[in-house]
Design a protein around this nucleic acid. Structure first.
Lengths: 349, 349
DNA sequence: CTGAAAGCGCTTACAG
DNA sequence: CTGAAAGCGCTTACAG
């Protein structure tokens, strides 16, 4: 319609005869000016279709009221992962309560660091280990607060984590307790979670597995163990399942680091007539919504994605509001959830 | 670390002896200045930890490189709906390719229109009918482009839709074709999709159902029809299923306007020992990912959420880049997908 | 209660 | 190749 220029505060000032200050107060500080003044200003503003420009306002106020969620992969892959999605839900809840907006930031032309340079937000939440030195450097230069989920905590970088090592240890212990000794470990692609410091989620979980294996005289290098990695999405999970099948390794149990990978295995195995857990057990990690409804229901480690999102977002908002980074290690609780996809290996097999 | 003030372009200018213009060019227009000049500038910038402030830059450039996705409900409910989620994926793909960021905008303190006033974005994509006159008014005042998905298209407001009426007609026709004559129609809550103009998605689908019923001499008011509404999430779906069960109406088929509602019915019914489709058939709408994996697999109408998101985002980006709103009616194709949750009613029943 | 002025940190014609 | 200056549209001490 009104294809002219937008009305600005100057137009309203000129039109009403009041100063810009007064116009501004009419919108942001009504009690500072006369009732009639305000009324007249709002009238004219309405006539001219004036709305204070949010960009100008934010710039002047030196804030955006938006927090950026750095996605580890292209958006589609990231949010198709139900665990990431849970985190997103948690973050969004906190944002909403704080009247903050949530900006999804995928790697821009493959570079997350370019995205971090340019994103107009007040703070970042990063997922996983993609937070390499370059990105941290950019965030520091911008002097913008940030929090990591599933990252490696450090003084500058608060992180929300579960105790991954113990969680992995507990899960593996269950698996071994059921008598399994030929186990395929389906790990996460280093791509998404790799850390130079070598202490990312993957490493920590591997340590946990290792510890449990040691208790029965095995190690990650034992012949009874097959190790493989996969990107964290259904399609790659199906391929990984094929890789297991084709390897001839014939594990009695598959221990996956993500439910979607575990579920992909279950689907693929079932399609081939392999019965779960009769022929092979499968356990996951995360306890995504589908885990309880897969067939059979998935035994897994439950970690509270939404809660982790909420914790990270709250910590970040605190920092944005000037509170010093509280403790840099924020810990959520995990829980091993026994369902039906883990059973005893067939003795006769 | 460097807890001082951030370095600004002025600091670099002072430090290097060059003007702000030159500093700016060093970052945005390298070829306009001397190689050595640039080198020196970048050096100093690096020393001082200077990064051009994105907010200031965007403000000056009068753009944000972000598009806003207006969520119909609180973020958590919205994105927990797999259909919305598909749309989100589609939008995000286009954003990513265009190096745009995606801002999730839930109703701010219950008011979407306040959110629309304040969101620092270059354009909006709105989902469903929440786009009432007030919101449209705000967007027009801001002179910011917008596109609707599942909305009511108009000259000012391009909309991406499937032909909901025909889709609903086709689905109902199948149901009737199987011989069903006692049917519960599980409709969407007007809350999320209601339009003053009374021509939102719900109305259009009801017209379609109505047309199919007329062909067998029935109408939405027939005794064979039970109508009920539900908010579009799993929990409400379970409650709706209970309402059907408790009503004593005993339909032979449930026709739901969303897969999550249909799936909730299936779950609840199954839990009560009701066999599907043997005792009651259930059909959905949307064809979300889980539809194919529910037990039994869900007969539904497939509509391409991701594609709709992509179409909307592309149209919006076009408008942001100054192209006139192309045609305001963008149509996606639907498809009735026959799986196993629809069968013949038990004749003896 | 109201206004003049400085400031937020960039970009970009325009002139040299 | 470089700089002075205007501009993007607000907010907010400060003074009256």
């Amino acid at each position: 319609m009104t294809r002219g220029k937008r009305a600005t505060i100057n137009d309203i000032a000129r039109e009403t005869g009041y100063s810009k200050s007064t116009i501004s107060f009419a919108f942001n500080n009504p009690q500072r000016i006369g009732v009639d003044t305000r009324k007249k200003i709002l009238e004219v503003a309405d006539q001219l279709g004036y709305i204070p420009d949010p960009m100008a306002r934010n710039f002047s106020l030196q804030r955006q009221r938006s927090i950026g969620f750095l996605l580890p992969q292209k958006t589609e892959f990231s949010i198709r992962n139900p665990y990431v999605y849970e985190i997103l839900v948690g973050i969004s809840q906190v944002c909403q309560d704080a009247s903050f907006t949530l900006t999804l930031i995928p790697p821009l032309n493959e570079s997350l660091s370019a995205a971090v340079r340019n994103a107009p937000v007040d703070g970042f939440i990063a997922l996983g280990m993609k937070v390499d030195m370059e990105i941290v450097d950019v965030m520091q230069k911008r002097q913008i607060p940030y929090v990591t989920i599933d990252g490696v905590p450090s003084a500058d970088m608060p992180s929300v984590n579960i105790d991954d090592e113990t969680a992995a240890y507990s899960m593996m212990k269950e698996v071994l307790g059921f008598g399994h000794r030929r186990i395929a470990i389906l790990s996460l692609c280093r791509d998404a979670y790799y850390s130079e410091n070598a202490d990312g989620v993957v490493s920590r979980r591997l340590r946990g597995y290792s510890r449990a294996l040691a208790e029965v005289g095995m190690s990650l290098q034992s012949e009874g163990i097959m190790m493989l990695e996969s990107e964290c999405n259904i399609d790659e999970g199906l391929k990984a399942a094929d890789r297991i099948l084709d390897s001839g390794f014939c594990p009695t149990a598959v221990v996956a680091m993500a439910d979607i990978l575990a579920i992909a295995c279950i689907r693929r195995f079932s399609a081939k007539g392999i019965r779960i857990p009769h022929d092979v057990s499968v356990v996951g990690f995360d306890d995504i919504g589908e885990a309880a409804y897969s067939n059979p229901p998935l035994t897994t480690v439950s970690q509270p994605g939404a809660e982790k999102g909420r914790l990270a977002a709250s910590a970040l908002l605190g920092m944005i509001n000037g509170k010093e980074a509280e403790n840099s290690r924020i810990v959520s609780q995990f829980e091993v959830v026994m369902r039906d996809s883990l059973g005893r290996p067939e003795s006769g097999k």
